[in-house]
Nucleic acid binder design. Sequence first.
DNA 1: AAATAATAGTTATATTTTATATCTATTTTC
DNA 2: GAAAATAGATATAAAATATAACTATTATTT
Lengths: 159, 159
Amino acid sequence: MSSKPAKPGAKSGQQPEKSLDLRALQRTPGFMLRLAQLKFFEGFYEEFAALGLTPATYAIFAVIRDNPGVPPSSLASLLRLRLPNLIKILNELESSGFIKRNRSKADRRAVELVLTPRGAKLIHDGAKLTEPYNQKMLAPLSEAEQRMLIELLNRILPL
Amino acid sequence: MSSKPAKPGAKSGQQPEKSLDLRALQRTPGFMLRLAQLKFFEGFYEEFAALGLTPATYAIFAVIRDNPGVPPSSLASLLRLRLPNLIKILNELESSGFIKRNRSKADRRAVELVLTPRGAKLIHDGAKLTEPYNQKMLAPLSEAEQRMLIELLNRILPL
DNA sequence: AAATAATAGTTATATTTTATATCTATTTTC
DNA sequence: GAAAATAGATATAAAATATAACTATTATTT
């Protein structure tokens, strides 16, 4: 919804620092991963701002969509969030009518999370923005390279 | 390459995340990048705890080492830190005797950052841990794949 | 050359994010 | 059936990050 400001350079924009020797950091995967993540998150906020989705809520919706009834504790450990912090988000999502908490019949301590129709529509709309967004973030890479990147990331992660 | 996670709704909660369908997130680069970054940072803190280095201070030391006289503003924009937050770190590093601030002769507003001998030794010691640390983090990848990952990250970043 | 604006660095503070400690209700173990 | 354990939730603390405002110097305007 926002147009691009035409003037570069004045603020802390992304003007590459040309004259510095950054080769050490460029060969440091942890540093490059951090920069990449920042880039993706900033881009995400721009792209999904209209829907009100954040990286966290997008992931939450996607997991509940594909795993209806998933409990908060699983969701938290999967997304690497502390349970209390996730609970806060779930409270907002429920009071906004996007998700519903059902008490498990089998174990009444447990909660089963499901999407409401409204939540299902939101993640469905969000999913339509996903392809162009990823394409934009990964623009410098060919299709094969994009698949390669994803595969390499999956290989180093214990998911 | 695409194996198939079984099914969503297994009730008996003995394996937290294993029975979940996470394919959507696994194909989401932004999410995988976040997980990867968390993994690298956690591993970093373990590996470099003895030296007292954090990912941020490691990067700061490396840049000053390779670019003596670099000003705080360049450092901040490069590391994607806000200047006031960087200043706080620089204050600690200087009062601990790892760096020194020199006023520029040409422009006396400007500060030129340099390592003290003690700072140089610290990053030198840190650099010796870097290879084994990266190797551990990237263990599931071959040498060629590790180089490929770094190259792909560099290509998508405007550094 | 004096006034004005702009820049680099810094300090102080607010906001946001993330982690810890505690509580209730249930279930499990002994 | 008492004690321990579990799932979720609330309250709060700590840490990370962002904004506002100040000083000193340099650049620009007139």
